[in-house]
Design a protein around this nucleic acid. Sequence first.
DNA 1: TAGATTGTTAATCGATTAACAATC
DNA 2: TAGATTGTTAATCGATTAACAATC
Lengths: 215, 215
Amino acid sequence: MKKERISNNVIRRLPRYLRKLDELMASGVNRISSTELGQQLGFTPSQIRQDFNCFGEFGQQGYGYNVPLLREQIAGILGMDRGFSAVLIGVGHIGRALMDNFCFSEWGINLIQAFDVNPELVGKEVSGVHVSSMDELQKFIANNKVDIAVLTVPRDAALPVSETLIDNGINAIWNFTNVELVEPGSPVIVENLHFSDSLLALSYYVSDYYDGQKK
Amino acid sequence: MKKERISNNVIRRLPRYLRKLDELMASGVNRISSTELGQQLGFTPSQIRQDFNCFGEFGQQGYGYNVPLLREQIAGILGMDRGFSAVLIGVGHIGRALMDNFCFSEWGINLIQAFDVNPELVGKEVSGVHVSSMDELQKFIANNKVDIAVLTVPRDAALPVSETLIDNGINAIWNFTNVELVEPGSPVIVENLHFSDSLLALSYYVSDYYDGQKK
DNA sequence: TAGATTGTTAATCGATTAACAATC
DNA sequence: TAGATTGTTAATCGATTAACAATC
């Protein structure tokens, strides 16, 4: 695998490649060219070849790409085979939605424990995952290898909880709280899923569409 | 307002500006320079000035930017004052999480109706929004101005439901299904919130971090 | 007026696209 | 061998950063 710094743009495209390749595999396609793949994804063939070549030579001249092989390569690059473990903090609506419906293991992540303040939830199992009291969070992190914290607490709890996590050695947070958790330049890896940012971008494009119609 | 095509990168930064400005207003800050704003957001002052100048002259030389005024300008650009209406399809876990916890009105969107196939939900109110049968979806769209459809149905229903929506004139979809809804080049505005793509990007950065440590 | 900070042009940097030799 | 398609270099395009005149 090459060592040059991979741009964020490339990283963001990898999961889309992965989903498309899964889809192709499911429909029995074993081989695909960058041209065909580009048409299906809306990318140029050049871009696809450049993207893959960031990580090595996955194709074969005159043939194209072997779908299952390429799929495995990309899964490896994304760390899906590393057995990362995650804990979920905040078994509210979104937390529960993730536990019940989002298949962490499909993406190579083990959700090993959940935490909540609600005494009615503590001690129960939700979708096969044990819910512990927030009081036990620190001890759990200290005694278990936890690679990722999924943060689904209410807005007000976001900052204090994230500070606890970071102070106890958590280095990566999947953030659903719509709150910026760290200062710019922090070494902690925070992946934000800011629903409102997404909705506002949509709102902009809808506005833009209506404005275009008027003319 | 200027007319040049605004790049997607700029659009994606606008909601972050908005959140930061709300925060500044809440703490009573009335005026800010591009330098200070840049430090707080991790952007360069140049970028901030370029971004704002896409839409007009919002600042004042020698002074900086008026926080409430700038906030209003950005809210307007994002279409928050247009009174867009939305319907939500699929009152499952994620749908419910949005209805109960996500404040659509805070972002200028009116959630006017929800739809589900489950007869136990149909006719009920969820967080003040009426849940109708999926059978009534077509009629409702025909008889009401609906700007945005929030798609929170299970994966299998994603494509058929989105086709129904589009066939009935829906032009913008906020997509939580982790499924690509339209072909590349479609005129329909789809804003994807692909949880798995986000998690995999995080997984990549965690892998990358561990690889860096090893050396 | 002097100082501060924008608006805007120019320079740089990086990402995408095109082209083509290498090779299966 | 001929055809296809990659890997990779070069060209283009666009986005970010720097610089500075305009001006509050």
